[in-house]
Design a protein around this nucleic acid. Structure first.
Lengths: 339, 339
DNA sequence: GGCCCCTGCTAAAACCATTTAGCAAATGCT
DNA sequence: AGCATTTGCTAAATGGTTTTAGCAGGGGCC
């Protein structure tokens, strides 16, 4: 049963030529002087035998494996991960590469193992991805292949792909204002310490910066800025509920959809109507956002596009430049229609 | 800069032995007769040089690549995918293997390409995963490595890993009854045609079977069975809302958390309290379930455990058997506490 | 005819590890 | 002492591809 795989030598034999000829023809070398007849015979032999090159042998010779590695801290913890992976996978497939996925849990020891495992397999490129955009620890190992930081940054590898949070922040404010909501707006999730860059990611501080600048440019101020550590639904619920004691805001700018989700719960419980009593805008385009009633208007994280661009950068060579990927705007019912 | 990699020959030279000796010692062959001194010298040489075997060379010789392939229809479409991947990844890491992830979108052409790409790379095992448990099309290519069906089945490969939906179904009913909710219960999502096995997955029909059997065993009947095609929140909302016109049920058994989510919305809107007016149980342990207030009691899909077991099966050899993985019960506030 | 160049192809080395077959020296046995 | 066995190790083949170096033959040129 274990019929041996067809090798290049088999193809060459059937074509009546040398393996050299077969190799050159099948790999499509440009400047070879082999006859058209030879080309035809080799291709025919290859297809009739169903020849598939042995990647290991090729890798051994050329140091190229037609594969890349995707090394991330967590793949499952956040529902975003899969967007990054999916985009990267699509990019890899287009480039006829295969993708190794490795998870490190953010532990240095596992990071080292992951990088070594990848390098051992002669990968043609490395993608370091973080589930929350941040400076990532890259193990101090000799890395001799193109490397891209995805949703993360590193002093060592300047090539990164990040969401354009600054513009995203500005857009969120603009959406509110254009919907007629500019007075009595509350920011949910803001945390002064975090904004100082001490505790959360750089990209979140760019989100803040965009929001602040756009507010400033329009001469607006938030009625209140509610802080919390975890941007989870229960925090959104608690903060909103407490805020409602002091009066009903006209709008809520939530720093992510989970906070907004909690806010919805508090608002509904208080008998307030969305968007007529209170309007909301948020960030991330979490799956949740479309499930809510009315749907949550949100500035999405373009994870899939980011994943794809990361792979493209890997293969872009010299002309590769860091990328800021625009965040899409998802208009749903949580904002009143502009009149 | 491109310092050449350390090879086995380098190690052997430093140790003052042959590559044969070095190879045997480093691969830990059992019945070799090399001296303890030789062992020491080789190991020392290897660590001082930082030797790492070239996987391609090894694969070429041994046909083993210390890698497996995870081939799935969709990796990102459902938030469950990542659980399967994560579990498989952990299993692979434990076995010192690396995992290739390939996505096919369920398209036969891409399936073939994926399998060939994997086989070309001498993977030591194949996992076919489907995001919804179902019979999966496996391309008709010679596959000469261990293969496991994950959350899916195939006539060709009997080794599968599936959630134990039958027991899960029974448990859901039991939970309701034990919480004192046995009269006036409505089933949300049931679809007769699907139950006939025509349109949805086999594992869902086992879920139905478990529910039906447990109800029958206790002499109970549903007050109503509400059908819909898509188990999405808006369907849950619509079905529940319509049902409320006819009276308020004591309990809802929802076939997944998204339906339950929609049901929550309808119930809240109608001013009904959970769980005092209406109790709910559901399936999947979607991320949503913990965000709801009160939390949704649900029978979870053990995706991570399933992924891990699939990998283990790959390496289990002869004694590998198909697996039914128990579904965990997540008790939250949507059921009244048993008195 | 002698020389050079071009055309069309191939032999053989290289990549790096594993593994088979086997050699030389030491030991054991009678 | 003589022979067989064990011990401790190595030479060389092997896996499948790419690539360097070069060969044979034909034609052009003077």
């Amino acid at each position: 049963m274990p019929k041996k795989r067809v090798t290049l030598a088999d193809v060459a034999r059937l074509a009546g030529l040398s393996t050299t000829a077969a190799s050159m023809i099948l790999t499509g070398r440009p400047d070879t002087r082999l006859s058209a007849d030879a080309h035809a015979k080799v291709h025919e032999a290859a297809t009739t035998l169903g020849y598939r090159p042995n990647v290991a042998a090729r890798a051994l010779r050329t140091d190229k494996s037609r594969s890349i590695a995707f090394i991330s801290d967590y793949v499952a913890t956040t529902r975003f991960a899969s967007g990054l992976i999916r985009g990267a996978l699509a990019g890899a497939e287009d480039a006829k590469h295969v993708m190794l996925v490795l998870e490190t849990g953010g532990e240095p020891a596992r990071e080292i193992q992951a990088v070594e495992a990848a390098l051992d397999r002669q990968v043609d490129g490395l993608i370091f991805a973080a589930m929350r955009a941040r400076e990532v620890f890259v193990p101090d190992i000799a890395i001799n292949v193109p490397t891209v930081m995805l949703n993360s940054t590193s002093a060592r590898f300047p090539l990164s792909v990040l969401p354009d949070e600054y513009e995203g922040g500005r857009t969120a404010v603009r959406l509110l204002v254009e919907a007629g909501v500019s007075e009595s707006v509350v920011l949910v999730g803001h945390n002064a310490e975090e904004e100082a860059g001490l505790f959360r990611s750089e990209s979140i501080s760019r989100r803040f910066a965009g929001i602040r600048d756009e507010m400033g440019a329009r001469g607006l101020r938030f009625d209140a800025e509610l802080s919390c550590w975890n941007w989870e639904p229960d925090q959104g619920y608690a903060l909103t509920k407490a805020q409602l004691q002091k009066g009903t805001p006209r709008g809520l700018l939530c720093l992510n959809d989970r906070l907004a989700f909690g806010a919805y719960q508090a608002l509904t419980e208080a008998g307030l109507a969305i968007p007529d009593d209170v309007a909301l805008v948020s960030f991330d385009n979490d799956e949740l956002a479309s499930y809510l009633r009315p749907g949550l208007t949100t500035i999405g994280l373009p994870h899939q596009e980011m994943g794809r661009r990361a792979v493209n950068l890997l293969f872009a060579g010299q002309k590769a430049k860091p990328q800021m990927v625009p965040m899409p705007t998802l208009i749903r019912g949580s904002l009143p229609a502009a009149h």
